[in-house]
Simulated scan of single mutants.
Amino acid sequence: MKRVPYSLVLSVIILKFFSVSALYVINFIKFVPKEVAYFLVAFFLFIIVSSINFRIFKFYSILLYVLVLFSLIGALIIGVAINSSRRWISIGGLFTVQPSEFAKISLIIIFAWIYEHKTWNNFEKFLYSTLLFLPYAIIVFLQPDMGTSLVFVFIYFFLIAVFLHYKYALTLVIIALSLIPLLPKILKPYQIERILVFFNPYRDPLGSGYNVLQSIIAFGSGKLIGKGILGSTMTKLNFVPVQYADFIFSAIGEIWGFVGIVVVLLSFAYILYFIAKAAFSTKNIFGRAIAFGVFAMFFFQILINAGMNIGIMPVTGVPLPFLSFGGSSELVNFIALGLVVSVYNYKDEINL
């Protein structure tokens, strides 16, 4: 088995320390035991995936795409409804799985498979990637889950910008700008309200703007070194809604202060640096596309989630990698990181 980069593992463990400390303050009994279990299973998968030559996954890219597509449709039709959204499939009534999280990995692998094809020209690659991207994005948007669908969009756009001619990326930008006047008809009322609150959180301080305002207050109360696990009253008393998932960054800010946030951001920075290094280390297009896809996924989620916690990004249901509570997202994050390590370790191997 190839060596796992210890510095990368250390960065992830640091993030998990901050995650568990925040979940401990929020509700130890409800979240910490499950989070530890998720981590152990996910880390085991990380070791397995990182030890497999990444080239093998291209032979299963279409099968994986179809399986995830059917699971997305199943979640939309017969999935478990939580807060008027059908994103989860119940497994024997014991636990739920969120297929849209696994769709991120599926999209990255299928895109990598498309970009590796030497017999297709750039237009054909653009066409095929678009045709395979649209079903995922539309179904997840209808669940509704605008946050995850935006992650899909960013991965799709980022890989096109990296691997295809700039004119395709420019075309997408023009199309996106032309759709802005249609947003009131496309988006649901609460989604439009989130955009308006982004520009002015005080338009509804006790309603749609409450989460953001409380998150900002929690951040500010942490000051330089934080209030500690025992003194973080806003987190302990649940002043910030959904703080175990979407707003866990604000809990870390209150508990560990500016110093803790810097450590978290440096850990993220190293993870992104390693992913970029893996992408540039190989000449294999399939491997490079996987690494760049994972980079896009992590970068966008970090940017959006951290930004919305401090009020500089609209509120969307995008989890913060390795920090937010959730089994499906934990598994996907570690699988994605395992793929990147595989690309880095097997970059010099011959093609299968």
Rank of each mutant, 00 (worst) to 15 (best):
226 G>T: 08
213 L>R: 12
266 L>M: 13
321 P>V: 00
83 N>K: 14
310 I>V: 15
310 I>P: 05
323 L>M: 14
208 S>E: 10
338 G>Q: 07
259 V>A: 13
178 S>K: 11
194 R>H: 09
161 A>H: 03
132 L>E: 04
181 P>Q: 11
168 Y>W: 11
197 V>C: 01
50 S>D: 09
252 I>P: 00
173 V>P: 03
144 P>E: 11
161 A>W: 10
230 L>C: 13
313 M>F: 11
80 V>S: 04
238 N>S: 12
258 F>T: 14
145 D>L: 04
245 A>F: 04
245 A>D: 15
8 L>C: 02
191 Q>Y: 07
15 L>V: 00
339 L>H: 08
207 G>D: 10
121 N>Q: 10
19 S>Q: 04
131 L>W: 09
48 I>E: 11
240 V>S: 02
211 N>C: 02
213 L>I: 15
37 A>I: 15
40 L>R: 09
203 R>K: 12
93 G>C: 09
319 P>C: 03
190 Y>Q: 09
17 F>D: 01
108 I>T: 00
321 P>F: 03
132 L>R: 03
327 G>S: 13
63 L>E: 12
214 Q>C: 05
297 M>C: 14
238 N>K: 14
88 W>I: 02
241 P>S: 04
157 F>Y: 08
181 P>N: 12
157 F>W: 06
12 V>P: 01
46 F>L: 08
316 T>H: 08
328 S>R: 05
164 L>T: 08
188 K>V: 00
21 S>I: 13
171 T>G: 14
202 Y>V: 13
38 Y>H: 13
207 G>P: 02
190 Y>W: 08
85 S>D: 01
72 L>R: 03
339 L>F: 15
44 F>K: 08
255 I>R: 13
125 K>V: 05
57 F>N: 03
171 T>Q: 09
159 L>D: 01
98 Q>V: 10
169 A>K: 06
66 V>K: 08
298 F>K: 00
56 I>D: 11
205 P>A: 12
301 Q>T: 09
341 V>I: 13
85 S>Y: 00
151 V>C: 00
269 A>K: 12
143 Q>F: 07
206 L>M: 12
242 V>M: 01
29 I>V: 13
187 L>E: 06
105 I>H: 06
73 I>C: 10
299 F>V: 07
161 A>Y: 11
242 V>Y: 10
128 Y>T: 13
60 Y>R: 10
133 F>H: 04
106 S>A: 15
38 Y>F: 15
242 V>W: 03
227 K>C: 04
244 Y>S: 14
350 I>L: 15
185 K>C: 00
196 L>I: 12
322 F>K: 05
294 V>L: 08
334 F>M: 03
302 I>P: 02
218 A>H: 06
137 A>K: 02
331 L>V: 14
105 I>N: 03
314 P>E: 01
140 V>F: 06
229 I>L: 15
26 I>G: 05
205 P>R: 11
101 E>Q: 11
314 P>R: 07
292 F>K: 01
15 L>G: 02
255 I>L: 11
183 L>P: 02
63 L>A: 14
265 L>S: 09
19 S>V: 08
162 V>C: 08
78 I>D: 15
